[in-house]
Design a protein around this nucleic acid. Structure first.
Lengths: 396, 396
DNA sequence: ATCCCTTTGTCCTGCGAGTGGAGAAAGTCG
DNA sequence: CGACTTTCTCCACTCGCAGGACAAAGGGAT
């Protein structure tokens, strides 16, 4: 089956497709309210979209006191694939054209195995999803990788934690493999786009999305658009100095935020505390599972373990200190905290908030919400779908 | 004389006006190369602009092997006023429509005297410039103030160093007084726009412009546009923590960058060093002039005074440390250093560079120039003129 | 001087986008 | 059953704009 051969022919059509994506099925009249076009022009463009098959008219809506309207919606068989490569796991999801997640799989994986192995696994997962009947094929795919990306070419560059990925033509290779258009971006940017599309950041123009997973990164949205920076490394805040002459970091410097707090650092510190006998809770968990992760620390803290709570608080304070600087600098309208460690929940959030509200300018923090992301692990894949749909729903 | 009653009627005309502003006088053919319009359409729009008087055709250019072209240029009598309010002085300049500075005055002033007194002085200076025959009147004015601004309304908000300015309707009041449109912005943003228009940042899309004067601020340019933030306080980096548990700052925190390095902090530290007998050079200068400023420190360092040099180096390192974080976060294509302390010159620049190149990610610093602004004190007023011309050269 | 070429600018025609009104279609409500 | 709403379609007319033809104005070679 050939898929989505058509693309919007002009800016009006692109606009209409995005309205239908974000606002759901609508009548021509409703579309007319949201777009600055005459009814006639609108009808012409909708008809053209109907001809191409990008949208369909299915059924009549209930009357609102007059003639019943036709429901216009994006073609129901359109499918986007979202692939979110993390440092230690892969998320793959299938969405419809409205970016609703129809199916979602997560599997552990080690990004250091290199792009070939990782994408083999990811494509296998995509194949499983397709086999369940959710999709006959994919009209586009968005891919997130845990490192900087040369965005126009869709190629990772100099990824510190991903040797073997540098220069691998992700976009081209996957496009070949899947037979559909592919866009590639940093995973943190995708998380930001996900929260912007369907999460807490809806209708916020300028915001920061801090993702604390194995590492720490920050999605930057300016005027509704992701800011990627000159070399695609914008938002790489894990190596900002948080502690002068602090812990050594693999990057060669000392005191980097990531060296003091991140999923990896937290696991390390928790293990150390357990081994040194400072935390019976953590020691018991280490005994039981052989290794500790952020989840264990969260559980220990919930069980009242003071050491675990301290680890969270101190990490939050370090993170908050860096975020405070970014807030003063960038003056966002919202800060979203996400990533694996959101399991640490409100203890972490409280520590971050305290630090930011204390250290940033009152004018910048006056009305600044700092909240947890609301999409959890689906933020990335929704953002990935959003990325490719933005690409496909733009004029020729 | 009534001035610039006309405004561009559509986006094409606005585009043409900006091309003429930035590229200087051009023939119709040259304009056609730079804009995506047919010759006929272009001719129509140029004719309309000629009718309105916004542009004029004066004389024929030399032949380039064929028919000689008419020179189209912005109306030569157009005048913009640029007012740059600093903490301790005012700059006022008059420019033509190409934003070339025709006259420029600087006078000492204390911003704490409040907006009424300050603008009385500024308008007096503008009057002097006009009296020299440079201008018969002003077609627009741009104003920079040393604090955050609610940009759409042109009103300063919560300026820490400017009590009495909070909420003062600068834009409205000055517009009334001058009888022309006025736009107001943070002085740092104007400096960035100045360097972007006529200085080192030409043709750079994303850059940071750090202004170190009495305080420290940072202009943020994203995709060619100034980022002002949600409450207009973006770029306020003076109160980012540079030294944990460092010097107390008037803002209530400790260790703010501004408390450790800025024009004011440098004067304070230099005076202290002179009084404690750590620097004969500075002591002699203190004796001679009664007070020290950044200029004295620069001179002392140039004369080989080790203490003065240390002050500069340490300040540069502190600043560089903060900038390193911002570079990792924002990944700019250029960092411009400007403001009063640029007199400290390459000693300061070297200290900043060392710190940034050491602390930021290689990918972000790989090809990152860190340079001094090239416009000096005119950057602000040129930026001010640019601000108002951007406003006036936009459709209705 | 003459002819040909280049460059610049103007004119004219035709196409297609887009507007706005008239009206048809399909309802609700009294 | 008629009055009123809402939705959608059709049509005539306007206007923006492209692109070719053409005029104007000059340079350079013969």
């Amino acid at each position: 089956m050939r898929r989505m051969t058509a693309r919007p022919a002009n800016a009006h059509q692109a606009r209409l497709l995005r309205l239908l994506r974000d606002g759901g099925p609508s009548s021509r009249a409703q579309l007319g309210d949201r777009v600055d076009l005459s009814r006639s022009k609108l009808a012409v463009e909708v008809d053209r979209l109907l001809e191409t098959g990008l949208v369909v008219a299915d059924g009549l809506a209930a009357s609102r006191g007059g003639r019943r309207s036709h429901n216009i919606r994006l073609a129901p068989q359109l499918r986007f694939l979202g692939i979110d490569i993390g440092a230690t796991s892969v998320d793959v999801a299938v969405t419809n054209a409205e970016l609703e997640v129809l199916g979602h799989i997560n599997q552990p994986m080690d990004v250091r195995e290199g792009p070939v192995a990782v994408f083999e696994q990811a494509l296998d997962m995509a194949g499983k999803l397709r086999a369940t009947g959710l999709a006959e094929g994919f009209d586009g795919a968005g891919v997130g990788v845990p490192g900087p990306v040369r965005f126009p070419e869709g190629v990772p560059v100099a990824p510190p934690i991903m040797p073997g990925w540098d220069g691998f033509p992700v976009r081209e290779a996957l496009s070949q493999e899947l037979g559909c258009p592919v866009m590639v971006d940093n995973d943190v940017n995708l998380m930001a786009m996900g929260e912007q599309h369907a999460g807490v950041a809806r209708s916020v123009g300028d915001f920061l999305c801090v993702k604390i997973g194995t590492g720490i990164g920050c999605g930057i949205v300016v005027g509704g658009e992701v800011h990627r920076g000159t070399t695609g490394s914008a938002g790489d805040i894990g190596h900002i100095q948080a502690v002068p002459d602090g812990r050594p970091c693999p990057c060669g410097n000392r005191g980097c935020l990531e060296a003091h707090f991140s999923g990896a650092a937290l696991a390390r510190d928790a293990t150390e505390a357990a081994q040194q006998g400072r935390s019976p809770e953590l020691a018991a968990r280490l005994q039981a599972s052989g290794a500790l992760s952020a989840v264990d620390v969260a559980a220990a803290a919930a069980a009242g373990d003071a050491t675990a709570l301290d680890l969270i608080r101190e990490g939050g304070a370090r993170t908050g200190q860096v975020i405070a600087g970014l807030v003063s600098f960038f003056n966002p309208g919202l800060v979203v905290i996400g990533g694996g460690v959101t399991g640490l929940g409100h203890n972490l959030l409280a520590a971050i908030r305290t630090q930011v509200y204390r250290q940033s300018l009152p004018l910048a923090t006056g009305n600044l919400p700092i909240v947890l992301g609301e999409l959890g692990p689906t933020a990335g894949v929704i953002g990935a779908a959003r990325l490719i749909s933005d690409h496909l729903f733009s004029p020729v």
